[in-house]
Design a protein around this nucleic acid. Structure first.
Ligand SMILES: [Mn+2]
Ligand SMILES: [Mn+2]
Ligand SMILES: [Zn+2]
Ligand SMILES: [Zn+2]
Lengths: 159, 159
DNA sequence: TTGATAATGCGAATTATTATCAATAAGAAA
DNA sequence: TTTCTTATTGATAATAATTCGCATTATCAA
């Protein structure tokens, strides 16, 4: 089922309204293959709708998370990143130098770990696995003393 | 090797100084079997040293993290929790109702997942696995409509 | 003991996110 | 269509965790 469809059905169930802002935030998330943070989403939506408020972006993301359309990830930085809910479960590696995010799957988690946890009587809602370290590029660059990755993604808050 | 010992040797290497505040923070962390946040550590140290500053607690925790004496965990709340570095790797389940933290081991991570990641050319520094959901107690309580766990731990910031 | 300077305490600053609230707009009903 | 109810928005203030700046203090090597 596509995200638009489950959004529509969610709207019908609760007394929600379909607004331009919600459509725009959802579109930006769907058209991006990256893990965007609120500020990045805000900037992208503003290209189409310069009047949108950052507060609306945050409210919309919180709503989408509740509806299960979007997942929030705390990847070790001081702010969250968002992506549309995916079919297959996956996890995240983040490079401490260039902040690149690499997704990976881990079937041993779904197949053996989670069942074992559930058997302990715990009800599982979310599973977040974050591995941090250095990507191949940054390892090479750091070794040759550059102390900078080839493609560093700037830290958000120093601006 | 005990934490005090590696603290001593770390102090010798860099030009660090052994202060009462550092001793006190380390002792509080070692004497607790919980995952304390900065505020809780602050409160515990203040019992012995009412003059310590919260900023010093944060600075000390950052230092201990650098030295590998202490690990920081973001468990889904808006602040960090800390524990002394453990021998065996372990991961964390957090109850969304009572905020209880349950540790668990996952040898499939160290034995098969991490080697697979490393083979991709990624250098691994930290591994954080957080599973959130409802503990057995809270499941029971929530079913009988109490909407409250038997032993809820208050959220920090509503005070 | 003394001197250099690492570390502290205090308060201000920062940053991500949330709350307030008057103004707006979605959409059901008339 | 027009009207009406109220969910949603935009603008901005408030919050909360953490960090910074700096004068003062304490550590420790000489
Ligand atoms: Mn992802
Ligand atoms: Mn632990
Ligand atoms: Zn990198
Ligand atoms: Zn619980």
């Amino acid at each position: 089922m596509s995200n638009q469809i489950s959004f529509q059905s969610a709207i019908k169930s609760r007394n929600l309204r379909m607004t331009n802002q919600r459509r725009q935030v959802l579109r930006v998330l769907e058209e991006s293959d990256e893990h965007l943070d609120a500020e990045a989403i805000y900037d992208l939506v503003r290209k189409q709708n310069p009047r949108i408020s950052l507060a609306t972006v945050y409210r919309t993301l919180a709503l989408f998370k509740e509806l299960g359309l979007v997942n929030e990830h705390k990847l070790g930085e001081d702010h969250s990143h968002f992506e549309t809910a995916q079919e297959e479960p996956h996890y995240h590696f983040t490079c401490l130098s260039c902040r690149k995010i690499i997704e990976f799957s881990a079937p041993e988690i779904e197949e053996t770990l989670l069942p074992r946890i559930a058997k302990q009587g715990l009800e599982i809602n979310e599973v977040h696995l974050i591995i941090s370290g250095y990507c191949a590029d940054c390892q090479a660059n750091l070794i040759e003393g550059k102390k900078q990755c080839s493609s560093p993604r700037p830290i958000h808050n120093q601006n």
